[in-house]
Amino acid sequence: MFAAEKIVVPCSLAIAQQRGEDMTKLRLLFDAGAIDPDWFSPEFLKQVSSAHVEQIISRIKGALGPLKGVQVNDGSGFLQFENARVPVRIGFDKGERIEMLWVGSPQLENLSLEDLVQKLKGVAAGVISVFVTVDGKPVLDEKSEKPLAVGSAFKLIILKAYEDAVKAGDIKRDQVVMLEDHDRSLPSGTLQVLSPGTPVTLEVLAQLMIKISDNTATDALLRILGRDKLETISPRNVPFMTTRELFQLIAPGAGDIRAQYKAGELQERRKILSSLNSERLPEVNRIARFATWQDVEWYLTAREICELLGELERTPALDDSSQPLFEGMDWQHIGYKGGSEYGVLNLSAIGTTRQGHKVCVVVTANGNAPQAEDQIAPLFADLLRVAGTSPG
């Protein structure tokens, strides 16, 4: 999901090599003046050229300086630089040529939480909110009570309503429901390609909503749970929009109705949303060309997101620590949800360290220009990592 200095080349079999060979090849990549294509397998070069690898390594060295050391074991470890370490994985074919190479986002070292916030302020467009808690206690607070547009992070509200309904016995995780025509939304996701009447379980909807941010799964679950339940959880977001309705309101040509919605009282807003039922979805390639979050969006504070994550941390939908951003952190658990649209970026995570400390980090940026996700996301991951290594 996140743009970083990384190369990912999948292979059916990455043959484990001795630690010494891993270190030698990685040093060669970073120390050589030019990269020889013969160092890579034909399968690798079909997907990534050696020139592209050389460009990426050059950018890494330009940003972090010369390589200081390599720490790898069975093809996985870290590249050590002066003030950062970089997760890396490498694998070889039978001819000892590189068949798989993955270089993750740099993990900055010797920086405090405050240092990281200053770096975030330097790259974010507009206003930024940052909130970090360790074992439930705030350790860093930058505008944590300011409501900001959060994009798909609003789906945590729906997940809470879903989990509450499961606990109350109102619904079951394996309950089968049918997709309806008006559930269909725009990507992200995959369910929009399915026909109305397709059966799915509620748990599949919940997990797709969080794990791949499926908008059609989100709107189907919202319909089944009911707006009233979501509006009870989040009164600021009344009326509670579907993703389909948001896309219709921010589409090109919808400026007048969007202005009416922004200026309208509650009943007028509900009337506008109801009128959208007869309107078609806009074309996906015509969305997100300018900032509209000031007019229509879902708004949450960083504190509210941390509270939601705290309640939902061990739910199946958040039981996933596979985000590439968290590579090498070796925590017991990390649950993640984020959201973005033009000018909006939210990154939110809650995790438990190996020592048992619970850490929550929320970063939200709102501006009139696209957010630099490729720079903000690694700093967000650094906040989580640094907070976890210095609890309390």
Rank of each mutant, 00 (worst) to 15 (best):
F2R: 14
F2D: 15
I7K: 10
S12M: 13
Q17P: 00
R19Q: 13
M23Y: 06
L26G: 02
R27P: 00
D31Y: 12
Q47G: 06
V48H: 11
S49K: 11
S49H: 10
H52C: 08
I60F: 10
I60Y: 10
L64A: 08
V70P: 00
V70R: 04
V72I: 12
G75N: 05
S76G: 07
D93Y: 11
R97A: 07
R97G: 01
I98A: 08
I98L: 10
V103W: 10
E109I: 14
V123I: 12
V123H: 05
G126L: 06
F131D: 00
G136M: 08
P138C: 04
P138K: 02
P147S: 07
F154Q: 09
A161S: 11
D164N: 11
V176H: 03
M178V: 06
M178Q: 15
S185V: 09
T190P: 04
Q192K: 09
G197F: 04
G197E: 01
M209A: 12
I210L: 13
K211S: 14
L222Q: 15
I224N: 06
D228C: 05
L230Q: 03
P235D: 07
V238H: 05
T242I: 10
F247V: 12
Q248C: 07
L249F: 09
A251M: 09
G255N: 14
K262G: 03
G264E: 08
E268K: 13
R269K: 15
A291W: 02
W293Q: 05
E297W: 09
A302K: 00
C306S: 15
L309V: 02
G310Y: 00
E327W: 15
I334A: 08
K337M: 14
G338H: 08
Y342M: 08
V344F: 07
L345R: 06
S348Q: 04
A349E: 00
V359N: 00
C360L: 03
T364G: 01
P378S: 11
L379I: 02
G388F: 01
P391W: 04
G392H: 06
